[in-house]
Simulated assay, not measured.
Amino acid sequence: MGKTLTLPKDLLVKQALNQMQQTLADNTWTDRQKLALTCRILFENGHDSGLAGQITARGPHPGTYYTQQLGLGFDEISAGNLLLVNEDLEVLEGHGMPNPANRFHSWVYRARPDVNCIIHTHPTHVSALSMLEVPLQISHMDLCPLYDDCAFLEGWPGVPVGNEEGELIAGALGNKRAVLLSHHGQLSTGASIEEACVIAQLIERAARLQLLAMAAGEIKPIQPELGREAHDWIARPKRHTAAFNYYARQNLRRHADCLN
């Protein structure tokens, strides 16, 4: 006779969360290694757009962050060729130059002390959706970490190399995890590198599903209370780390050099 078949849902959720906390493994990679892994993961999952896009994580001192060199694709990033820069994009460690568009990351970091990693990319389906000037619609359980957690910037400010764009994008993001940028791409954030990577993966999948659903008919909304419940169930640090670890294992079979 089963012991849990008559338990209420809230108790089963609590038990499952406790078990996840005790069972799901963390990882021991450095921030540089996790950033390099993130670049390779995103490259393999549709986020590659030549030299466009930036991935950053806060550095060891306030006002500093790690980022990739301009001129290298995501599939070429390794722990050893990342740059450490300051808010003025001056290189403190490493060789080469950062992407000048990294300037708006400084504005996001200043506005959001809870954010430790920012991923800005132009993946295919996000970019296609951005051309329609419509917000991201979250109407599937798997996508619910973005439920009421993805902002929308309808007006395109042009190339984001000025301080004006930094203020605009940081303001549009507000207190949410991600923002869809019309005629541009996406920005995902996380309290950890793992979380930002998973959110970036998710927003591209969400855009792809939205385009498929829009082509077939009218997207039906989910009930807000259920969307919020699923958001809080999935969007947890342990689950983000477990998902990141899975993506990393997949990609280390082809990209083991990124850890060097």
Score class of each variant (00 low, 15 high):
4 T>K: 12
5 L>V: 12
9 K>D: 06
17 L>P: 00
23 T>Y: 11
26 D>Y: 04
26 D>T: 13
27 N>V: 01
30 T>M: 10
31 D>Y: 00
34 K>E: 08
34 K>Y: 03
35 L>D: 01
36 A>M: 06
36 A>L: 04
43 F>G: 01
50 G>K: 09
53 G>V: 05
57 A>S: 15
59 G>Q: 09
61 H>S: 14
65 Y>R: 14
67 T>V: 14
71 G>T: 06
72 L>Y: 13
73 G>A: 12
82 L>W: 11
83 L>Y: 07
86 N>E: 08
91 V>D: 08
92 L>V: 09
93 E>P: 04
94 G>P: 13
98 P>G: 07
99 N>Y: 10
106 S>N: 12
107 W>V: 00
116 N>Y: 07
122 H>V: 04
128 A>H: 04
129 L>F: 08
130 S>L: 09
134 V>Y: 05
134 V>N: 08
136 L>W: 09
143 L>T: 02
146 L>F: 07
148 D>T: 01
148 D>W: 01
148 D>G: 02
151 A>S: 15
153 L>N: 06
155 G>A: 14
156 W>D: 10
158 G>W: 12
162 G>W: 08
163 N>S: 14
165 E>D: 12
168 L>F: 13
172 A>P: 09
173 L>S: 10
176 K>L: 13
179 V>R: 05
182 S>L: 06
186 Q>G: 11
188 S>T: 05
192 S>W: 06
192 S>V: 04
193 I>S: 04
194 E>P: 00
195 E>I: 00
196 A>H: 02
200 A>V: 00
200 A>H: 02
200 A>M: 06
205 R>L: 14
207 A>Y: 03
213 A>F: 07
221 P>S: 14
231 H>M: 09
236 R>S: 05
238 K>S: 08
242 A>D: 08
243 A>D: 09
243 A>N: 06
244 F>R: 09
246 Y>L: 14
249 R>G: 03
249 R>F: 09
252 L>R: 10
252 L>V: 06
253 R>C: 08
254 R>H: 15
